[in-house]
Design a binder for these strands. Structure first.
Lengths: 125, 125
DNA sequence: ACTTGACCTGGAGTCCACTCCAGGTGGGAT
DNA sequence: ATCCCACCTGGAGTGGACTCCAGGTCAAGT
């Protein structure tokens, strides 16, 4: 049960301090504590939430949908089904994304093969 | 050896007409022919190039790098090695991307598992 | 002769996700 | 006492990739 300054949190979470402030402002980080001087104090729970946000964001979820998820979490236990639906939809999109990336990677590799051949042919014999 | 209007090209390539114009403007589509009235006339070759661009784009290559690739292609045969390097770098990035997506998908699925369990536990017995 | 519709141009506007800035505060080190 | 530094706020600015708009042209249909 530790607490962290904005700088530490930025370092641990991989988000910049500006991004942390921005996320709080748009409602992605509810309930961040403040000390007597008005400065943010992040908890281990906040760190965990940030890890989740990072995961969603890097898998391509837009901030608007992350905000929706955040609101559902805040709304309490009766939103569990909705959260589940949201995450399952997201999981499906990630799956499609990966499949599509693989196909396109194959295309790129065909092109690479083509250029490799071109280079070989042009070698002096 | 057919030729296509902007509308047909948009339909076949999946880029909007505005995007086609934009790509031509920033140098991604060199040598697009025009008819007597000044309208664009796309060839099968252009279509093929657009397919390549789409592939690079959807695998996350920024327009600036696509432009660099485009310039290399225009510069002729002595840039084949550079093109190869560029595509191989890109391929590596795509590979990393896919691996990372898989890891993060696992995280999402753990969360889904957690919520599924939560729902099961809360079922009336 | 006239309208329609697909196209043209240059340039402005939009959206997303930050990122930066000016001006201000409070606490600890020298 | 003073200085520094990490932090605060509201709001403006940025970068990437489009997307839209006003005003104009041409060819074909009625």
């Amino acid at each position: 049960m530790s607490s962290y300054t904005p700088a530490e949190t930025a370092e641990k979470s991989g988000f910049s301090i500006d991004t942390l402030r921005y996320y709080e402002k748009i409602g992605l980080l509810p309930g961040i504590a403040r000390n007597a001087a008005g400065r943010r104090v992040f908890s281990d729970g906040d760190l965990g939430w940030l890890t989740m946000l990072r995961c969603l964001r890097e898998t391509g979820m837009p901030l608007a949908e992350m905000r929706r998820y955040s609101l559902l979490v805040q709304a309490g236990a009766e939103t569990v089904q909705e959260r589940l639906d949201l995450l399952q939809d997201h999981d499906r999109r990630v799956e499609e994304r990966i499949a599509r990336l693989r196909e396109q990677q194959d295309q790129v590799r065909m092109k690479i093969g083509f250029y490799t051949d071109a280079l070989c042919e042009s070698l002096p014999v």
